[in-house]
């Protein structure tokens, strides 16, 4: 299996993740709500995964709507 590189965005609460999820869904940006990867940590335990090429537009769209705590590279098989 080849490795896929994606980005994960962490938020400060589950409610913030839900806000971000709604915005991305409405805008048709492919995303996936996943548990925060073990090597990262956040209080809320869930985060949003997007494709690398969508990171920039995702961040732009979320600006002013919900605060992104941090973004991280994620490699999965």
């Amino acid at each position: 299996m080849s490795r896929v590189f994606r980005k994960v965005l962490l938020f400060e609460s589950v409610s913030a993740v839900l806000v971000a999820e709604k915005v991305l869904k409405d805008r048709g940006i492919p995303y996936k709500l996943i548990p925060v990867p073990k090597h990262l940590s956040s209080d809320c335990g869930v985060c949003i995964r997007v494709n690398v090429e969508d990171l920039r537009s995702t961040e732009e769209i979320l600006t002013g709507k919900v605060k992104v705590l941090s973004t991280h590279e994620l490699s999965e098989t």
Partner: peptide, 13 residues
């Protein structure tokens, strides 16, 4: 709503 989030998270793990 929370239950939906947890289910997504569970199935992914």
């Amino acid at each position: 709503v929370l239950g939906g989030v947890l289910m997504k998270s569970f199935l992914h793990t």
